[in-house]
Amino acid sequence: MSAATNLPLAQLRFWDTTVGKKAVMAVTGFILFCFIVGHLLGNLQIYEPPEKINHYSELLKSMPSLLWGTRIILLVSVVLHIWASFALWLLQRAARPVSYVKKVNAHSTYASRTMMWSGPIILAFVIYHLLNFTFGTVHPGGPFDEHNVYNNVVTGFQFWPSSAFYIIAMIMLCYHLYHGLWSMFQSLGYSHPVYTPWIQRGAKIAAILIAAGYISIPVSVLAGFIKPV
């Protein structure tokens, strides 16, 4: 193999290198993280009287350009995030064709090594979640009323397998964010002996808080704290 200096530099593009793809994953991951936070804040209105969250839903629908703009950005992010990770996953498999008889992981966290598991589970969940609550095509808990978000949520979660899937997915999301939230800084080139450990701690706390916030909803429904109206 000849060295690269002979080749015109522009022959390969940003996306074509592993570092480029990881940067794309970091940026799209950050966008998705912002959504997750916003979505959680919206969802927590479930603890308010039903009118509040239903009104919020109407408000979003009254601004179709904002709503669809966001949805398109999210969709593009999801596609890029998955595309990059899948391409990298193929590279990883090719990079070690013969595996070790014995291999010990000395340092890395469980969360960091299972990103390729937590990711697809979350994806599967997102699809189900959209069918369950956004489109209402799959809503085994009861009738779906697109003007009554509050009831949709409660009835949806009263169907316990749905809640169980939701909780598992949120635990996966927690793992995913646990590593992904600080990893994006590293992928984009920021690391500091003092601040990075704080970013890592912050990532863990944020991951746990977000998952706890989401999980509290089906738990509250199943426990009967939140009832349909």
Partner: peptide, 9 residues
């Protein structure tokens, strides 16, 4: 060589 996943091994 494949990509870095920032796991620190």
């Amino acid at each position: 060589f494949a990509n870095c996943t920032n796991i620190g091994e």
